Computed example of a mutant assay.
Amino acid sequence: MVGRIWERWRGNAARVDAGFLLPFALLSAFQTSDLTRNLPVPGYAALTIGLLLPMVWRRRWPVPTFGIVALVSLVQWCFHVTLLPANVAVLIGLYTVTAYTTPWWGLSALGVAQLGALMEVIQVWAGGWKDIENPWLFFAVIIFGVWILGLHIRTRREYLRSVEDRAERLERERENELRMARAGERSRIARELHDVVAHNVSVIVVQADGASYALDTDPVRARQALTAISETGRTALGEMRRLLGVLRADDDVSVYTPQPGLAQLGDLVDQVRHAGLPVDVQASGDPPSLAEGRQLTIYRVVQEALTNTLKHGGPEATARVRLGYGPDEVRVEIRDDGRGAAASDDGRGHGLPGMRERVGVYGGEVRAGPRVGGGFEVVARIPVREGAAMSGEGAR
């Protein structure tokens, strides 16, 4: 309860400033008559109110309130009225202008306050301040100290504001990075879906065609083809569920199976062989330790190339897969002896552009096209680590 009242009271700047000035108002009310012998009580009250009342709105209008206080002090000086307790408003106004406005306004307020102190010292030089050798220096030090305090507070406030602005900017940048990461993840999922659907549907189509031809002449082979279709369909559904599940925020990520890599290349080749495409695989060199992203890229390159052979190579096509593991790069070559340039192309495929995009992410290169003498080849070179230099053989 007390905390809420305090927060509500602090929320009103004018109310806070009025409470801050209340002790000075009480001190002025109980001032002795020695300071008012040259001024009637109504005049004394008018000067006190004219000096203290504008300070209630000092933070809302710092320059106008300081101007009013300076004008009232000038009137006080013209009537030869000595310093009053309410003259502390000059120091409060100087601090407010320095802390809440521009440096030029702060310097102007400092000059006005110092000029007013010098005028006061000149007026009372003969009759007062006998205990102080240099009264102007006394005033000047106090005024300068108040100006330094206001300057410090303004500098600190600007620093805190810059820290808050930086925090807000970093928060916005973090949100933008998150949005970009989500967009990139959705693009990756789209590429994954294309690879999964294109490969598995191609296998299913080839197996279905083979089963239809062998249904009457070779029932055993037709049954094997149907079994392969069933297994391929289940595999495709499982991968599609895994990929689409990433888009669901209420699913547990831990239930997703790992991304395929080099260890799953054997299963991929076996699946393609069961689909009717003879594939010969050879590897040279020692497989380096590759990140999962690079392993997935190699897997998808082989998958896409073999899928294209299944779709466009023809019934008698065969394929060769060569993996060359080097200290700086992995070279992947997939060649077939199918139709090559004679194969039909509807122009709607995204496999080769997606392949180049995948490999390009890691600074690699892809060369794909018909072979001289027939067939098709895909050659990809993937750096083993960041910054590995690529030679110019595959650059096109």
Results as ranks from 00 to 15, higher is better:
residue 4 R to E: 04
residue 15 R to K: 08
residue 16 V to Y: 09
residue 16 V to Q: 06
residue 16 V to A: 07
residue 17 D to C: 13
residue 22 L to R: 05
residue 22 L to K: 02
residue 24 F to V: 05
residue 29 A to M: 10
residue 30 F to P: 00
residue 31 Q to F: 15
residue 34 D to Q: 11
residue 38 N to A: 10
residue 42 P to K: 09
residue 42 P to W: 14
residue 44 Y to S: 01
residue 45 A to K: 11
residue 57 W to H: 08
residue 57 W to E: 02
residue 63 V to Q: 04
residue 64 P to K: 11
residue 64 P to M: 11
residue 66 F to L: 11
residue 80 H to N: 06
residue 80 H to Q: 08
residue 85 P to G: 03
residue 87 N to I: 07
residue 88 V to W: 12
residue 90 V to G: 05
residue 91 L to R: 06
residue 93 G to Q: 09
residue 98 T to A: 10
residue 101 T to Y: 10
residue 102 T to K: 09
residue 102 T to V: 06
residue 110 L to R: 04
residue 114 Q to V: 11
residue 122 I to E: 09
residue 128 G to D: 10
residue 128 G to K: 14
residue 132 I to F: 10
residue 133 E to L: 15
residue 133 E to G: 12
residue 134 N to G: 04
residue 134 N to Y: 15
residue 141 V to W: 14
residue 145 G to L: 15
residue 147 W to E: 00
residue 153 I to Y: 15
residue 154 R to W: 08
residue 157 R to C: 03
residue 163 V to C: 08
residue 165 D to T: 11
residue 172 R to A: 10
residue 178 L to M: 12
residue 183 A to V: 10
residue 184 G to E: 13
residue 186 R to D: 03
residue 187 S to A: 14
residue 189 I to F: 12
residue 193 L to D: 00
residue 196 V to S: 02
residue 202 S to R: 09
residue 204 I to Y: 03
residue 209 D to Q: 13
residue 210 G to R: 15
residue 210 G to I: 12
residue 216 D to I: 14
residue 219 P to N: 05
residue 221 R to Y: 11
residue 222 A to F: 14
residue 226 L to H: 07
residue 230 S to M: 13
residue 232 T to P: 00
residue 234 R to V: 10
residue 235 T to E: 09
residue 244 L to M: 11
residue 249 A to P: 04
residue 250 D to V: 06
residue 253 V to H: 13
residue 253 V to P: 09
residue 255 V to P: 06
residue 260 P to T: 09
residue 261 G to W: 12
residue 267 D to W: 14
residue 268 L to Y: 07
residue 272 V to E: 00
residue 276 G to S: 03
residue 280 D to K: 12
residue 286 D to W: 15
residue 287 P to N: 03
residue 289 S to P: 03
residue 291 A to P: 03
residue 293 G to W: 15
residue 294 R to Q: 01
residue 294 R to K: 05
residue 295 Q to W: 09
residue 296 L to S: 05
residue 298 I to M: 06
residue 302 V to L: 07
residue 303 Q to S: 03
residue 304 E to A: 12
residue 305 A to R: 06
residue 307 T to K: 00
residue 310 L to P: 00
residue 320 R to S: 01
residue 322 R to S: 03
residue 325 Y to C: 00
residue 329 E to F: 14
residue 331 R to C: 02
residue 332 V to N: 00
residue 333 E to G: 00
residue 341 A to Q: 05
residue 346 D to Y: 08
residue 351 G to K: 09
residue 355 M to F: 06
residue 357 E to L: 15
residue 367 R to W: 13
residue 371 R to Y: 04
residue 377 E to W: 14
residue 382 I to L: 08
residue 382 I to H: 02
residue 384 V to W: 08
residue 386 E to Y: 14
residue 392 G to P: 06
